[in-house]
Design a protein around this nucleic acid. Structure first.
Lengths: 342, 342
DNA sequence: TTGAAAGCGGTACCAG
DNA sequence: CTGGTACCGCTTTCAA
């Protein structure tokens, strides 16, 4: 049972040295054409496959990037990873994928594993970008990294995102302008998403600016698929609400389902706006009202930017991408039925 | 500029040999507790991080699995990768991710790159599982792999999927039973998806069994976001259709959008059923009629099965998972408006 | 133009 | 229980 052929095998087969074989692989131009052909022939005969791990060990860099997202079950992150992957493919880079499942405690473990792989750089979506041990570690070890979707306070760390607060503000503002006076935010748990908190802040600011006092808030776990219980009070309790702003599209979808379960039509009885803009095919989002920035493109940009950091051609800085509201075709008008009980 | 600390550094610092350090890392139980503590202390002081690539080079296996999907922009695949990642995390495995973008020509390159990384095994969703050079290569090189979503003819290659043909049959059957006599299938290009062809076959069989002659077919590219043109003839041409069966949920969503663009309500004027069951939160699928098998679970199963293959505990075989139709709540009745022109 | 040889950071066998 | 040491597969001087 012959193990996989190595460079030595190729060298032997071609009657040349392994140094020459290496040259043929890495800089064929430095080798006379006939020699190249001989070596290539040998490689073909042996079905030779360079063992990248050998190279990685020797070289200073690994041409590998690590990616950490909360979950791929959220199309927003999945799509961004698709963008990263595409760009990585174009650059000839390998992608190491991990996910934290929205659990801050798992982030360090995941990043650790990535660092043990000696990735050249990282693209991360963290639960909380500020005062995060992972960020400190990376900064201390001087590993290039860029945050995606996070908006850290510190201006000297690379981040690519839309303006979370502003996008929530804009959505809330649209709803207010259409006559909603009693709004609630359905937000992912703040501990597992700083975006969620930032969006809530923007939401509150919009209400304040409009002279509305009470911003209702419901925090739910991500991946929460059934919001019927969590939304009971909001939809048919004492503090009845006419519109919901959700911190993510997935939550918006879940909220819409809950509304329907309560016999409320959306829109009509209640309006639901989701922040995110799940751009999978541009179609999945219930186009009520979304602050959209095509996520796949954000992924590509993140990798491109990371490449700049790795090669030292650019410096860490935060890029705030413009967001825009999807048409919000059906955000109003509001006409809630008097009493809906379940 | 001290490079990253290595085992030798730890050995020196702790006054022990690198062999002992290695033991502390890999089998601490073989080392007296005090020694373990000394070494651990040294590692902590130095901020030591084992370089996995060194290990990989030495060991026969890499504890790494390669994953190839058409794209993560399709929630079905993204979710399955999430399942794979979860299971990999539980097993302490590293995931190398690649995508083919539905391009068969890119599959070989991607798998090649994965093999150069000496992955222990692969999980693949291929454009076409039959007579595929990638499959031949893997079989020849005896690399464990399992196909996900593909249903190859050969029974001796590992595959996890629902029964594509049957699920399409079932959906079509439901629609027929509800009164549809003029149905069309909107399918992804057969070249880029054998599932698509298999589903079309099932669709046709259902029509034949019901005594319906002409199965309409429109093949479209995946990621096709705008089906207005492709569906023009079907929706308002001479061969008017009352129901669409789509080979994937993403296509179904796109089709629904197209219907609306033509002023048709869905369901009502026309019924659209999607095969797949995008289970992101269980909510994104317009629940017209979907053959669902939770995709995340399929991913986990795939990795678990792959692990069995790698350890030699199980043999390649195809697992056909049961699918079920989502409630199809609103698949009919059909009441198409007489003339819809655009 | 080509080759010999010294590692890269680990693992594990074999002695002591 | 611990240490010396020979690799794993590849890159890269340095000489020939």
């Amino acid at each position: 049972m012959p193990s996989k052929p190595t460079m030595r095998d190729v060298a032997r087969k071609s009657g040349l040295s392994i140094a020459t074989v290496s040259r043929v692989i890495n800089s064929p131009d430095d080798v006379p054409a006939p020699t190249v052909e001989i070596v290539n022939a040998a490689m073909r005969h042996l079905n030779y496959r360079p063992n990248i791990n050998g190279r990685r060990l020797k070289m200073r860099h690994t041409r590998t990037v690590g990616v950490l997202v909360p979950t791929l079950a959220n199309p927003v992150f999945a799509t961004s990873v698709q963008g990263i992957e595409q760009e990585a493919h174009a650059e000839g880079l390998t992608v190491l994928l991990t996910s934290s499942n929205y659990d801050p405690d798992r982030e360090m473990g995941a990043v650790s594993a990535l660092l043990n792989n000696r990735v050249d750089g990282l693209i991360l979506t963290l639960a909380n970008a500020d005062s995060n041990p992972v960020v400190d570690l990376l900064l201390a070890e001087k590993i290039p990294f860029v945050l995606l979707f996070n908006q850290p306070y510190r201006a000297d760390i690379a981040a690519i995102s839309v303006d979370n607060a502003q996008s929530a503000y804009d959505i809330a503002d649209v709803m207010i302008k259409r006559g909603h006076r009693s709004l609630a935010m359905v937000a992912g748990r703040f501990e597992s998403s700083d975006r969620s908190r930032q969006r809530y802040d923007g939401f509150c600011r919009a209400l304040v600016d409009a002279g509305i006092e009470t911003p209702h808030l419901v925090q739910v776990g991500f991946g929460e698929t059934d919001l019927i219980e969590p939304l009971r009070d909001l939809l048919c309790g004492p503090a009845v609400v006419t519109g919901l702003v959700c911190s993510t599209d997935m939550l918006a979808i879940a909220a819409i389902n809950a509304c329907r379960a309560y016999g409320l039509s959306v829109p009509g009885d209640v309006s639901v706006g989701g922040i995110d803009g799940i751009s999978v095919g541009g179609l999945i989002t219930p186009k009520l009202c979304s602050a959209v920035q095509p996520t796949q493109e954000m992924g590509r940009q993140a990798l491109a930017f990371l490449r700049g950091l790795i090669t030292g051609q650019s410096n860490p800085e935060s890029l705030l991408l413009p967001h825009h509201l999807s048409d919000g075709e059906s955000i109003g008008p509001f006409r809630r039925r008097s009493s809906t009980r379940i």
